[in-house]
Design a protein around this nucleic acid. Structure first.
Lengths: 229, 229
DNA sequence: CGACTCTTTGAACTACCTCAAATGTGGTGG
DNA sequence: CCACCACATTTGAGGTAGTTCAAAGAGTCG
Protein backbone atom coordinates (compact mmCIF):
# COMPACT_ATOMS: atom_id res chain seq x y z
CA UNK A 1 0.00 0.00 0.00
CA UNK A 2 1.01 3.58 -0.51
CA UNK A 3 2.76 4.88 2.57
CA UNK A 4 1.57 8.48 2.40
CA UNK A 5 -1.75 7.63 4.07
CA UNK A 6 -0.21 5.49 6.79
CA UNK A 7 0.23 8.28 9.35
CA UNK A 8 -3.42 9.19 8.90
CA UNK A 9 -4.45 5.61 9.63
CA UNK A 10 -2.07 5.25 12.53
CA UNK A 11 -3.59 8.41 14.04
CA UNK A 12 -6.97 6.69 14.19
CA UNK A 13 -8.11 6.02 17.76
CA UNK A 14 -8.05 2.32 17.04
CA UNK A 15 -4.40 2.17 15.92
CA UNK A 16 -2.92 5.17 17.73
CA UNK A 17 -1.68 3.39 20.83
CA UNK A 18 -0.59 0.09 19.33
CA UNK A 19 3.11 -0.67 18.93
CA UNK A 20 4.80 0.36 15.69
CA UNK A 21 5.77 -3.23 15.21
CA UNK A 22 2.25 -4.62 15.44
CA UNK A 23 0.97 -1.81 13.27
CA UNK A 24 3.49 -2.48 10.55
CA UNK A 25 2.68 -6.16 10.53
CA UNK A 26 -1.01 -5.35 10.29
CA UNK A 27 -0.43 -2.99 7.38
CA UNK A 28 1.85 -5.33 5.49
CA UNK A 29 -1.06 -7.43 4.32
CA UNK A 30 -3.44 -4.50 3.96
CA UNK A 31 -4.69 -2.91 0.77
CA UNK A 32 -5.50 0.71 0.25
CA UNK A 33 -7.91 0.89 -2.62
CA UNK A 34 -9.99 3.53 -4.34
CA UNK A 35 -13.57 2.65 -5.17
CA UNK A 36 -16.00 4.56 -7.38
CA UNK A 37 -19.30 5.84 -6.01
CA UNK A 38 -22.27 3.48 -5.70
CA UNK A 39 -20.19 0.34 -5.50
CA UNK A 40 -21.31 -2.41 -3.14
CA UNK A 41 -18.37 -3.36 -0.92
CA UNK A 42 -19.93 -6.04 1.22
CA UNK A 43 -23.17 -7.96 1.28
CA UNK A 44 -25.24 -8.94 4.28
CA UNK A 45 -24.37 -12.46 5.32
CA UNK A 46 -20.86 -12.50 3.83
CA UNK A 47 -18.14 -13.75 6.13
CA UNK A 48 -16.01 -10.98 7.56
CA UNK A 49 -12.65 -11.32 5.84
CA UNK A 50 -11.58 -7.72 6.21
CA UNK A 51 -11.79 -4.83 8.59
CA UNK A 52 -12.56 -1.71 6.57
CA UNK A 53 -11.11 1.71 7.28
CA UNK A 54 -12.66 4.56 5.34
CA UNK A 55 -9.85 7.01 4.62
CA UNK A 56 -11.70 9.29 2.25
CA UNK A 57 -15.21 9.48 0.83
CA UNK A 58 -18.43 8.15 2.33
CA UNK A 59 -19.93 4.71 2.85
CA UNK A 60 -23.52 3.72 3.51
CA UNK A 61 -24.28 0.77 5.78
CA UNK A 62 -27.67 -0.67 4.93
CA UNK A 63 -29.82 -3.70 5.53
CA UNK A 64 -32.59 -5.38 3.60
CA UNK A 65 -35.48 -7.69 4.51
CA UNK A 66 -39.06 -8.23 3.35
CA UNK A 67 -38.31 -6.43 0.12
CA UNK A 68 -37.57 -3.28 2.10
CA UNK A 69 -34.15 -1.70 2.38
CA UNK A 70 -33.04 0.83 4.99
CA UNK A 71 -29.92 2.82 5.63
CA UNK A 72 -28.53 1.89 9.03
CA UNK A 73 -25.64 4.33 9.26
CA UNK A 74 -23.34 6.46 7.16
CA UNK A 75 -19.59 6.16 7.74
CA UNK A 76 -17.42 9.24 7.33
CA UNK A 77 -13.61 9.45 7.23
CA UNK A 78 -11.54 8.47 9.05
CA UNK A 79 -13.49 5.65 10.62
CA UNK A 80 -13.57 1.87 10.67
CA UNK A 81 -16.63 -0.19 9.97
CA UNK A 82 -17.90 -3.70 10.69
CA UNK A 83 -15.44 -4.20 13.53
CA UNK A 84 -17.76 -6.45 15.54
CA UNK A 85 -18.18 -9.02 12.75
CA UNK A 86 -14.38 -9.12 12.34
CA UNK A 87 -13.79 -9.73 16.03
CA UNK A 88 -16.44 -12.43 16.28
CA UNK A 89 -15.32 -13.98 12.98
CA UNK A 90 -18.98 -13.84 12.01
CA UNK A 91 -21.02 -12.79 9.01
CA UNK A 92 -21.78 -9.14 8.31
CA UNK A 93 -25.16 -8.00 9.61
CA UNK A 94 -25.15 -4.98 7.33
CA UNK A 95 -24.21 -4.44 3.72
CA UNK A 96 -21.99 -1.55 2.67
CA UNK A 97 -21.71 0.53 -0.47
CA UNK A 98 -19.88 3.70 -1.35
CA UNK A 99 -21.92 6.88 -1.57
CA UNK A 100 -19.05 8.79 -3.11
CA UNK A 101 -15.69 7.85 -4.61
CA UNK A 102 -13.83 6.46 -1.60
CA UNK A 103 -10.36 5.46 -0.50
CA UNK A 104 -10.64 2.45 1.74
CA UNK A 105 -8.08 0.45 3.66
CA UNK A 106 -8.77 -3.27 3.86
CA UNK A 107 -7.08 -5.01 6.76
CA UNK A 108 -7.11 -8.78 7.04
CA UNK A 109 -9.61 -9.82 9.68
CA UNK A 110 -7.41 -12.69 10.83
CA UNK A 111 -4.51 -10.27 11.29
CA UNK A 112 -6.70 -7.98 13.37
CA UNK A 113 -7.64 -10.84 15.67
CA UNK A 114 -3.98 -11.84 15.88
CA UNK A 115 -2.82 -8.31 16.72
CA UNK A 116 -5.51 -8.15 19.35
CA UNK A 117 -3.98 -11.19 21.06
CA UNK A 118 -0.45 -9.88 20.93
CA UNK A 119 -0.77 -6.18 21.59
CA UNK A 120 -2.44 -5.19 24.84
CA UNK A 121 -2.70 -1.53 23.86
CA UNK A 122 -4.50 -2.53 20.67
CA UNK A 123 -6.85 -4.71 22.71
CA UNK A 124 -7.72 -1.74 24.90
CA UNK A 125 -8.29 0.45 21.86
CA UNK A 126 -10.56 -2.16 20.32
CA UNK A 127 -12.65 -2.35 23.46
CA UNK A 128 -12.92 1.41 23.60
CA UNK A 129 -13.91 1.61 19.94
CA UNK A 130 -16.41 -1.22 20.27
CA UNK A 131 -17.98 0.22 23.40
CA UNK A 132 -18.32 3.59 21.69
CA UNK A 133 -19.95 1.97 18.68
CA UNK A 134 -22.29 0.01 20.94
CA UNK A 135 -23.38 3.19 22.65
CA UNK A 136 -23.87 4.76 19.24
CA UNK A 137 -26.33 2.10 18.15
CA UNK A 138 -28.17 2.32 21.47
CA UNK A 139 -28.54 6.06 20.96
CA UNK A 140 -29.81 5.54 17.44
CA UNK A 141 -32.26 2.97 18.74
CA UNK A 142 -33.52 5.40 21.37
CA UNK A 143 -33.79 8.04 18.69
CA UNK A 144 -36.10 5.85 16.63
CA UNK A 145 -38.20 4.55 19.51
CA UNK A 146 -38.69 7.79 21.43
CA UNK A 147 -39.02 10.47 18.78
CA UNK A 148 -41.27 11.40 15.89
CA UNK A 149 -39.75 11.83 12.45
CA UNK A 150 -39.87 15.64 12.66
CA UNK A 151 -38.03 15.54 15.98
CA UNK A 152 -35.40 13.24 14.51
CA UNK A 153 -34.85 15.57 11.60
CA UNK A 154 -34.67 18.67 13.83
CA UNK A 155 -32.05 17.08 16.05
CA UNK A 156 -30.06 15.86 13.08
CA UNK A 157 -29.97 19.38 11.66
CA UNK A 158 -28.82 20.75 15.00
CA UNK A 159 -26.05 18.16 15.09
CA UNK A 160 -24.82 18.90 11.57
CA UNK A 161 -24.84 22.62 12.25
CA UNK A 162 -22.68 22.14 15.33
CA UNK A 163 -20.29 19.77 13.54
CA UNK A 164 -19.88 22.21 10.68
CA UNK A 165 -18.84 25.14 12.79
CA UNK A 166 -21.98 26.39 14.49
CA UNK A 167 -22.53 29.32 12.13
CA UNK A 168 -26.22 28.68 11.64
CA UNK A 169 -25.66 27.07 8.25
CA UNK A 170 -25.04 23.51 7.18
CA UNK A 171 -24.61 21.30 4.17
CA UNK A 172 -26.46 17.99 4.10
CA UNK A 173 -23.59 15.55 3.76
CA UNK A 174 -25.44 13.20 1.41
CA UNK A 175 -28.59 12.81 -0.63
CA UNK A 176 -31.92 13.48 1.04
CA UNK A 177 -33.05 10.03 -0.04
CA UNK A 178 -30.35 8.49 2.18
CA UNK A 179 -30.90 10.95 4.99
CA UNK A 180 -34.59 10.03 4.95
CA UNK A 181 -33.88 6.32 5.23
CA UNK A 182 -31.30 6.92 7.96
CA UNK A 183 -33.92 8.87 9.90
CA UNK A 184 -36.46 6.11 9.36
CA UNK A 185 -38.81 7.77 6.91
CA UNK A 186 -39.60 8.00 3.21
CA UNK A 187 -38.14 10.73 0.97
CA UNK A 188 -41.62 12.19 0.61
CA UNK A 189 -42.00 12.41 4.33
CA UNK A 190 -38.60 14.04 4.75
CA UNK A 191 -39.63 16.69 2.29
CA UNK A 192 -42.74 17.36 4.32
CA UNK A 193 -40.78 17.32 7.57
CA UNK A 194 -38.57 20.10 6.21
CA UNK A 195 -41.68 22.11 5.42
CA UNK A 196 -42.98 21.48 8.93
CA UNK A 197 -39.75 22.97 10.29
CA UNK A 198 -39.97 26.14 8.18
CA UNK A 199 -41.84 28.08 10.92
CA UNK A 200 -38.91 27.23 13.21
CA UNK A 201 -36.41 29.05 11.06
CA UNK A 202 -35.29 26.20 8.83
CA UNK A 203 -34.83 27.13 5.19
CA UNK A 204 -33.62 24.60 2.67
CA UNK A 205 -32.08 25.15 -0.71
CA UNK A 206 -30.93 21.91 -2.27
CA UNK A 207 -28.38 20.51 0.13
CA UNK A 208 -27.82 23.85 1.87
CA UNK A 209 -29.77 24.47 5.04
CA UNK A 210 -29.93 27.66 7.08
CA UNK A 211 -31.07 27.60 10.70
CA UNK A 212 -32.34 31.10 11.45
CA UNK A 213 -33.74 30.40 14.90
CA UNK A 214 -31.78 27.79 16.78
CA UNK A 215 -33.70 28.48 19.96
CA UNK A 216 -37.07 27.81 18.38
CA UNK A 217 -35.69 24.73 16.66
CA UNK A 218 -34.37 23.39 19.96
CA UNK A 219 -37.83 23.79 21.48
CA UNK A 220 -39.34 21.45 18.92
CA UNK A 221 -36.29 19.15 18.76
CA UNK A 222 -35.84 18.71 22.51
CA UNK A 223 -32.20 17.66 22.12
CA UNK A 224 -30.98 15.14 24.66
CA UNK A 225 -27.36 14.40 25.54
CA UNK A 226 -28.20 10.74 26.11
CA UNK A 227 -29.37 10.45 22.50
CA UNK A 228 -27.53 13.10 20.54
CA UNK A 229 -24.38 13.51 22.66
CA UNK B 1 -20.98 -12.35 49.19
CA UNK B 2 -22.35 -15.83 49.54
CA UNK B 3 -20.05 -18.29 47.84
CA UNK B 4 -22.68 -20.74 46.64
CA UNK B 5 -23.48 -18.62 43.59
CA UNK B 6 -19.86 -18.03 42.68
CA UNK B 7 -19.49 -21.05 40.38
CA UNK B 8 -22.57 -19.92 38.50
CA UNK B 9 -21.01 -16.51 37.94
CA UNK B 10 -17.62 -17.91 37.05
CA UNK B 11 -19.32 -20.08 34.43
CA UNK B 12 -20.57 -16.96 32.66
CA UNK B 13 -18.91 -16.44 29.29
CA UNK B 14 -17.44 -13.20 30.53
CA UNK B 15 -15.65 -14.70 33.55
CA UNK B 16 -15.15 -18.28 32.43
CA UNK B 17 -11.67 -17.92 30.98
CA UNK B 18 -10.18 -15.41 33.40
CA UNK B 19 -7.63 -16.55 35.96
CA UNK B 20 -8.91 -17.71 39.34
CA UNK B 21 -6.77 -15.07 40.92
CA UNK B 22 -8.24 -12.16 38.96
CA UNK B 23 -11.72 -13.53 39.45
CA UNK B 24 -11.32 -13.76 43.19
CA UNK B 25 -10.02 -10.22 43.40
CA UNK B 26 -12.94 -9.03 41.31
CA UNK B 27 -15.43 -10.82 43.55
CA UNK B 28 -13.87 -9.64 46.80
CA UNK B 29 -15.38 -6.20 46.43
CA UNK B 30 -18.58 -7.44 44.84
CA UNK B 31 -22.03 -7.61 46.42
CA UNK B 32 -24.66 -10.18 45.72
CA UNK B 33 -27.98 -8.63 46.61
CA UNK B 34 -31.62 -9.54 46.32
CA UNK B 35 -33.97 -6.87 45.08
CA UNK B 36 -37.78 -6.89 45.12
CA UNK B 37 -39.77 -6.55 41.90
CA UNK B 38 -40.34 -3.14 40.35
CA UNK B 39 -37.29 -1.54 41.93
CA UNK B 40 -35.29 0.94 39.88
CA UNK B 41 -31.64 -0.10 39.95
CA UNK B 42 -30.09 2.59 37.81
CA UNK B 43 -31.21 5.83 36.23
CA UNK B 44 -30.33 7.16 32.80
CA UNK B 45 -27.40 9.54 33.11
CA UNK B 46 -25.97 8.08 36.32
CA UNK B 47 -22.26 7.41 36.27
CA UNK B 48 -21.42 3.74 35.88
CA UNK B 49 -20.07 2.64 39.24
CA UNK B 50 -20.96 -1.04 38.93
CA UNK B 51 -21.16 -3.79 36.40
CA UNK B 52 -24.39 -5.69 37.02
CA UNK B 53 -24.75 -9.45 36.69
CA UNK B 54 -28.28 -10.77 36.84
CA UNK B 55 -28.10 -14.12 38.61
CA UNK B 56 -31.80 -14.73 39.04
CA UNK B 57 -34.98 -12.89 38.13
CA UNK B 58 -35.56 -10.42 35.30
CA UNK B 59 -34.50 -6.84 34.63
CA UNK B 60 -35.96 -4.33 32.21
CA UNK B 61 -33.69 -1.82 30.47
CA UNK B 62 -35.66 1.23 29.45
CA UNK B 63 -35.21 4.77 28.26
CA UNK B 64 -37.27 7.93 28.51
CA UNK B 65 -37.47 11.16 26.53
CA UNK B 66 -40.18 13.61 25.47
CA UNK B 67 -42.45 12.28 28.18
CA UNK B 68 -42.42 8.89 26.50
CA UNK B 69 -40.82 5.79 27.95
CA UNK B 70 -39.87 2.64 26.07
CA UNK B 71 -38.46 -0.74 27.00
CA UNK B 72 -35.14 -1.21 25.23
CA UNK B 73 -34.34 -4.77 26.31
CA UNK B 74 -35.12 -7.38 28.93
CA UNK B 75 -32.21 -9.08 30.66
CA UNK B 76 -32.56 -12.72 31.69
CA UNK B 77 -30.26 -14.79 33.95
CA UNK B 78 -27.38 -15.30 33.86
CA UNK B 79 -26.33 -12.21 31.96
CA UNK B 80 -24.48 -8.95 32.54
CA UNK B 81 -25.84 -5.55 31.67
CA UNK B 82 -24.48 -2.06 30.99
CA UNK B 83 -21.01 -3.36 30.23
CA UNK B 84 -20.24 -0.64 27.68
CA UNK B 85 -20.82 2.22 30.14
CA UNK B 86 -18.56 0.51 32.67
CA UNK B 87 -15.74 0.09 30.16
CA UNK B 88 -15.98 3.66 28.90
CA UNK B 89 -16.37 4.99 32.45
CA UNK B 90 -19.37 6.86 31.10
CA UNK B 91 -22.94 7.50 32.14
CA UNK B 92 -25.67 4.91 31.62
CA UNK B 93 -27.67 5.39 28.43
CA UNK B 94 -30.49 3.23 29.75
CA UNK B 95 -32.23 2.92 33.07
CA UNK B 96 -32.82 -0.46 34.68
CA UNK B 97 -35.49 -1.82 36.98
CA UNK B 98 -36.39 -5.27 38.19
CA UNK B 99 -39.43 -6.91 36.64
CA UNK B 100 -39.41 -9.71 39.20
CA UNK B 101 -37.64 -10.33 42.49
CA UNK B 102 -34.00 -10.61 41.41
CA UNK B 103 -30.61 -11.68 42.68
CA UNK B 104 -27.99 -9.36 41.25
CA UNK B 105 -24.24 -9.28 41.54
CA UNK B 106 -22.73 -5.80 41.64
CA UNK B 107 -19.09 -5.67 40.59
CA UNK B 108 -17.07 -2.50 41.02
CA UNK B 109 -16.64 -0.82 37.65
CA UNK B 110 -13.12 0.32 38.49
CA UNK B 111 -12.19 -3.27 39.37
CA UNK B 112 -13.55 -4.48 36.05
CA UNK B 113 -11.41 -1.97 34.19
CA UNK B 114 -8.42 -3.00 36.29
CA UNK B 115 -8.96 -6.69 35.68
CA UNK B 116 -9.26 -5.95 31.99
CA UNK B 117 -5.76 -4.44 32.04
CA UNK B 118 -4.21 -7.29 33.96
CA UNK B 119 -5.88 -10.39 32.60
CA UNK B 120 -5.58 -10.95 28.85
CA UNK B 121 -8.13 -13.76 28.86
CA UNK B 122 -10.64 -11.46 30.53
CA UNK B 123 -9.91 -8.79 27.92
CA UNK B 124 -10.68 -11.28 25.17
CA UNK B 125 -13.89 -12.32 26.88
CA UNK B 126 -14.97 -8.70 27.26
CA UNK B 127 -14.40 -8.03 23.56
CA UNK B 128 -16.38 -11.12 22.66
CA UNK B 129 -19.24 -10.15 24.98
CA UNK B 130 -19.25 -6.57 23.77
CA UNK B 131 -19.18 -7.56 20.11
CA UNK B 132 -22.07 -9.95 20.70
CA UNK B 133 -24.06 -7.24 22.43
CA UNK B 134 -23.28 -4.81 19.64
CA UNK B 135 -24.59 -7.25 17.09
CA UNK B 136 -27.66 -7.75 19.27
CA UNK B 137 -28.56 -4.07 19.18
CA UNK B 138 -27.94 -3.91 15.45
CA UNK B 139 -30.33 -6.83 14.98
CA UNK B 140 -32.94 -5.14 17.14
CA UNK B 141 -32.50 -1.97 15.15
CA UNK B 142 -33.01 -3.86 11.89
CA UNK B 143 -36.05 -5.51 13.42
CA UNK B 144 -37.63 -2.13 14.11
CA UNK B 145 -36.70 -0.50 10.84
CA UNK B 146 -37.52 -3.33 8.47
CA UNK B 147 -40.59 -5.01 9.94
CA UNK B 148 -44.17 -4.19 10.77
CA UNK B 149 -45.40 -4.69 14.31
CA UNK B 150 -47.25 -7.90 13.42
CA UNK B 151 -44.09 -9.31 11.84
CA UNK B 152 -42.09 -8.41 14.93
CA UNK B 153 -44.57 -10.17 17.17
CA UNK B 154 -44.71 -13.26 14.97
CA UNK B 155 -40.93 -13.59 14.97
CA UNK B 156 -40.74 -13.03 18.69
CA UNK B 157 -43.25 -15.84 19.28
CA UNK B 158 -41.26 -18.15 17.02
CA UNK B 159 -38.11 -17.34 19.00
CA UNK B 160 -39.72 -17.97 22.39
CA UNK B 161 -41.20 -21.23 21.18
CA UNK B 162 -37.77 -22.43 20.04
CA UNK B 163 -36.08 -21.29 23.26
CA UNK B 164 -38.66 -23.08 25.37
CA UNK B 165 -38.22 -26.47 23.78
CA UNK B 166 -39.90 -26.27 20.41
CA UNK B 167 -43.09 -28.05 21.47
CA UNK B 168 -45.44 -25.60 19.85
CA UNK B 169 -46.23 -23.91 23.16
CA UNK B 170 -44.66 -21.01 24.99
CA UNK B 171 -45.03 -18.81 28.03
CA UNK B 172 -44.63 -15.09 27.58
CA UNK B 173 -41.73 -14.37 29.93
CA UNK B 174 -43.15 -11.04 31.14
CA UNK B 175 -46.16 -8.79 31.04
CA UNK B 176 -47.71 -7.99 27.67
CA UNK B 177 -47.34 -4.32 28.49
CA UNK B 178 -43.55 -4.75 28.54
CA UNK B 179 -43.52 -7.04 25.53
CA UNK B 180 -45.49 -4.42 23.61
CA UNK B 181 -43.01 -1.68 24.44
CA UNK B 182 -40.07 -3.93 23.62
CA UNK B 183 -41.61 -4.63 20.23
CA UNK B 184 -42.19 -0.93 19.69
CA UNK B 185 -45.96 -0.77 20.00
CA UNK B 186 -48.72 0.08 22.46
CA UNK B 187 -50.42 -2.56 24.62
CA UNK B 188 -53.63 -2.02 22.63
CA UNK B 189 -51.83 -2.66 19.40
CA UNK B 190 -50.18 -5.80 20.77
CA UNK B 191 -53.60 -7.12 21.70
CA UNK B 192 -54.78 -6.51 18.13
CA UNK B 193 -51.61 -8.01 16.68
CA UNK B 194 -52.33 -11.24 18.57
CA UNK B 195 -55.81 -11.27 17.06
CA UNK B 196 -54.32 -10.69 13.60
CA UNK B 197 -52.18 -13.80 14.13
CA UNK B 198 -55.11 -16.01 15.14
CA UNK B 199 -55.72 -17.21 11.56
CA UNK B 200 -52.08 -18.34 11.55
CA UNK B 201 -52.59 -20.76 14.40
CA UNK B 202 -51.72 -18.51 17.32
CA UNK B 203 -53.97 -18.88 20.35
CA UNK B 204 -53.39 -16.90 23.49
CA UNK B 205 -54.59 -17.55 26.99
CA UNK B 206 -53.15 -15.10 29.47
CA UNK B 207 -49.41 -15.58 29.24
CA UNK B 208 -49.72 -19.00 27.58
CA UNK B 209 -49.46 -19.12 23.82
CA UNK B 210 -49.98 -22.10 21.54
CA UNK B 211 -48.60 -22.11 18.00
CA UNK B 212 -50.73 -24.58 16.06
CA UNK B 213 -49.32 -23.89 12.62
CA UNK B 214 -45.66 -22.96 12.69
CA UNK B 215 -45.43 -23.16 8.92
CA UNK B 216 -48.20 -20.64 8.37
CA UNK B 217 -46.76 -18.40 11.08
CA UNK B 218 -43.34 -18.50 9.43
CA UNK B 219 -44.91 -17.38 6.15
CA UNK B 220 -46.21 -14.19 7.73
CA UNK B 221 -43.17 -13.73 10.00
CA UNK B 222 -40.50 -14.24 7.32
CA UNK B 223 -37.85 -15.08 9.94
CA UNK B 224 -34.33 -13.96 9.03
CA UNK B 225 -31.12 -15.30 10.54
CA UNK B 226 -29.50 -11.87 10.25
CA UNK B 227 -32.18 -10.41 12.52
CA UNK B 228 -33.43 -13.25 14.69
CA UNK B 229 -30.37 -15.52 14.74
C1' DC C 1 -29.33 18.77 -25.34
C1' DG C 2 -31.35 14.67 -23.45
C1' DA C 3 -31.81 11.02 -20.19
C1' DC C 4 -31.16 10.00 -15.97
C1' DT C 5 -32.34 10.15 -10.99
C1' DC C 6 -33.61 12.99 -7.10
C1' DT C 7 -36.93 15.88 -4.99
C1' DT C 8 -41.27 17.90 -4.28
C1' DT C 9 -46.27 18.09 -4.26
C1' DG C 10 -50.88 16.26 -4.13
C1' DA C 11 -54.31 12.77 -3.04
C1' DA C 12 -55.68 8.63 -1.04
C1' DC C 13 -54.73 5.02 2.08
C1' DT C 14 -53.12 2.32 6.22
C1' DA C 15 -50.72 1.19 10.28
C1' DC C 16 -50.59 2.58 14.47
C1' DC C 17 -51.93 5.65 18.36
C1' DT C 18 -55.06 7.89 21.70
C1' DC C 19 -58.88 8.04 24.53
C1' DA C 20 -62.53 5.83 26.93
C1' DA C 21 -64.71 2.13 28.98
C1' DA C 22 -65.46 -2.73 29.99
C1' DT C 23 -63.38 -6.88 31.60
C1' DG C 24 -59.95 -9.73 33.64
C1' DT C 25 -56.29 -10.81 37.08
C1' DG C 26 -52.98 -10.91 40.79
C1' DG C 27 -51.67 -9.30 45.22
C1' DT C 28 -52.81 -7.70 49.92
C1' DG C 29 -54.83 -7.13 54.22
C1' DG C 30 -58.59 -8.29 57.04
C1' DC D 1 -59.65 -17.78 52.42
C1' DC D 2 -62.05 -14.15 50.63
C1' DA D 3 -63.09 -9.50 49.22
C1' DC D 4 -61.22 -5.73 47.51
C1' DC D 5 -58.27 -2.81 45.04
C1' DA D 6 -55.11 -1.56 41.74
C1' DC D 7 -53.50 -2.44 37.62
C1' DA D 8 -53.16 -5.21 33.20
C1' DT D 9 -55.62 -6.42 29.19
C1' DT D 10 -59.11 -6.15 25.81
C1' DT D 11 -62.42 -3.87 22.85
C1' DG D 12 -64.36 -0.09 20.38
C1' DA D 13 -64.30 4.40 18.07
C1' DG D 14 -61.97 7.94 16.13
C1' DG D 15 -57.71 10.48 15.06
C1' DT D 16 -52.90 11.16 13.20
C1' DA D 17 -48.38 10.22 11.52
C1' DG D 18 -46.49 8.34 8.04
C1' DT D 19 -46.84 5.52 3.64
C1' DT D 20 -47.93 4.65 -1.16
C1' DC D 21 -48.84 5.93 -5.71
C1' DA D 22 -48.72 9.17 -9.33
C1' DA D 23 -46.94 12.99 -11.61
C1' DA D 24 -44.66 17.26 -12.08
C1' DG D 25 -40.31 20.05 -11.35
C1' DA D 26 -35.25 20.23 -10.70
C1' DG D 27 -30.44 18.93 -10.76
C1' DT D 28 -26.80 16.36 -12.80
C1' DC D 29 -23.99 14.05 -15.98
C1' DG D 30 -22.88 12.05 -20.23
Amino acid sequence: MRSSELPQVKALGLFETMSEQSFERLMQAAYLQTFPAHLTLIHEGDTADFLYVLVEGAVELYAAANGREETMAVVRPVETFILAAVLKDAVYLMAARTIARSRILLVSAADVRLAFEEDAAFARAIVSELATRYRGVVKEHKNIKLRSSVERLANRLIRYEAEQGGHGVLELPYEKRILASLLGMTPENLSRAFRTLKPYGVSVNGSSVVLNDLKALAVIAKPNLLIDG
